[in-house]
Design a protein around this nucleic acid. Structure first.
Lengths: 353, 353
DNA sequence: GCAACGAATGTTTGCGCCAACATCGCGGCG
DNA sequence: CGCCGCGATGTTGGCGCAAACATTCGTTGC
């Protein structure tokens, strides 16, 4: 419209001059002298189009700057080529890394990612997030870091493929699990192997599945080794909470080995020990969990459990795609992703006193 | 296919049985005994609907579990209620924090967020990301952390509102700027005020606008104070690169104050100094930039420049919404967000030797 | 008492695309 | 030589929704 005579507001200042609607298939079709259906075929890379015609259509698309309208395509096909990700905060290191990997894997398959962040840890907040995504039209949903919710049985709205990362819901949906238990076993066994009589544990918050699993495995590993099981200390994943726990531990001369639930808490523990004048690793050994990019540079560099978040992201997307193809959940339960032990300078044999 | 004879796998085990299409307005309309247009009016909260009718429609929606189909709505209105975010990697602390804030602000306005991650730092990669988003049908785009690209003039596809965070592009588009210059000035002046003769700087990668701006401001601040300007050291934001720079600095007895381009590099610098036996802050003071959650717990806790990423995210969304309303870019140039200096234990007056 | 109005609701139309079917033309085969 | 089959293309219809316009009916003003 308004294209006759005057050009649509030439140089009217705003960067998006000419709010004329973008070219549609019909425009391309007209320019290329074919039907819009042929344009559709070219756009979708169908095989049954004559090479010469295809060239012509592609050229017209190029000239007009044609971009298919995803909304129209989605409406017509019922597919959106979009994944939804629900995460409890994006800042937590693992969540950010996992999200990045999911985005990368999705992009490789020409899917985009719609991110929703849940603030409150309630069932209704998660349900809202689901509603938001189902409205926003996604083909499947990845739920990251399902924390323990206020209802025993969160009923995720069904009818949509779902993949759960590290959550309880993997009982009902395919899931990816970072094998917390194995990581905690690795950490605990490493300290035991070094000769420590037992290992103290600073656990993550009680409403975290990951924290709970790590603690359980720590407990099992100690039992299996016949080591005494010291009382559990709780933190909230933050360095501050690790510091608080570290203060307690530093006051106890019996403590020679500590397994912190994540690297941040380990950092806090290290600081508390340092302030108490207990040297690491000579007097006390500390192991973390996650392997932050910074952990190798802490003082001392931190022995920790490395998590392969890239693999977690890839697996999530793969599991979702499996469901797209098969039309239902093929794998039940969680696909494990193995963590690895990274030994650095914060652990050593106990003092020989 | 294969749908004849056999009913489509009733209760075949998958969690999404009954792939029957979700209820549409027509279904709701029929149940409520009104026209679908009235349902539309209720769904969009229009005022001119009788209260009784509205109740009836809402009840029907409830019963049927009706969710508006966003694709159809978008097709009809041309609006998508979706923001696109382009980021160079999601792991970088600032990017993750900013993204989280953007998601939160968008959700508050009932918009969703489509995230695209750019891996290569080339113009074409960014252009691809734009293409991806414009195809995926977003109403506007936020470009985070525009690194210096391989072309002098990146021409962002126009016709769509854009907001740029910390990038060169804010010359052509509204932008949000974390006021790198002010942060670097605060850091440098803090060290100078403590009595240091001059301040050495470990700069971020050369292709980062943020790094360049911090370095420029550091330089200006030194000049303004009449302090000598030592040679610039380059890192790549990583702790490893900070460590490498720190090794060099530790070998130079003249160095008493270091301003690192971010907290990770500061961590590396601290480690190198520590290994060289130079005590912090007694012999050398170190200031970082960003204020990671962990920085307060480093040994020693790190003096740094705090960035308000929440505010950045909010501003981005606000600027985009402004453009939606006005139909064009109202604000040109960057909206500054002020950083603040956080003094901790890694800085002090220089040795009195 | 009647025209004019406006609120509540219905009808029509088309957004851009794709699935399904229709058509056309050409070469092969009995 | 005529029919079949297949590859290339065109035509029709409808996905679910909302804008624009049409209709109904109860009010108000003079």
């Amino acid at each position: 419209m308004a294209k006759d005579g005057e050009v649509a507001k030439p140089g009217s200042g705003g960067p998006f001059e000419a709010r004329t609607r973008p070219p549609s298939m019909a425009d391309v079709a007209e320019m290329a002298g074919v039907s819009s259906q042929t344009v559709s075929r070219v756009a979708n890379n169908r095989s049954n189009v004559d090479e010469a015609t295809r060239e012509r259509v592609l050229a017209a698309m190029q000239v007009l700057g044609y971009r298919p309208n995803t909304a129209a395509r989605a409406l017509a096909t019922g597919k959106f080529r979009m994944l939804g990700v629900i995460s409890f905060g994006l800042n937590a290191y693992g969540n950010a890394r996992t999200l990045e990997a999911i985005v990368a894997a999705a992009q490789d398959a020409d899917y985009s990612v719609n991110v929703v962040s849940v603030r409150a840890q309630t069932e209704s907040a998660v349900r809202d997030a689901f509603d938001r995504l189902t409205m926003q039209a996604v083909d499947g949903i990845i739920l990251i870091e399902a924390q323990i919710l206020d209802t025993p049985a969160l009923r995720l709205p069904s009818g949509l493929p779902v993949v759960v990362v590290d959550g309880e819901e993997s009982r009902r949906h395919p899931g990816v699990d970072t094998n917390q238990a194995e990581g905690a076993r690795l950490a605990t066994a490493h300290l035991l192997d070094l000769g420590h009589r037992t290992v103290w544990h600073v656990c993550g918050p009680q409403d975290s599945y990951a924290a709970r699993r790590r603690a359980e495995s720590w407990h099992r590993t100690l039992k299996a080794a016949g080591a005494p099981v010291p009382p559990l200390l709780y933190g909230d994943w933050s360095a501050a909470s690790g510091y608080a726990a570290g203060l307690e531990l530093a006051a106890n001369p019996e403590v020679s080995a500590i397994f912190a639930g994540n690297d941040q808490m380990a950092l806090g523990v290290v600081r508390a020990l340092h302030e108490a004048g207990r040297s690491i690793p000579d007097e006390v050994s500390v192991v973390g969990f996650d392997d932050l990019a910074e952990s190798a540079w802490f003082l001392p560099s931190l022995t920790t459990i490395h998590q392969d978040f890239e693999e977690v992201g890839r697996q999530c997307v793969a599991l979702l795609f499996d469901q797209f193809r098969s039309g239902h959940a093929t794998v039940h339960g969680a696909t494990p992703v193995a963590p690895t032990l990274i030994v650095r300078d914060s652990t050593s044999a106990p003092p020989t006193s």
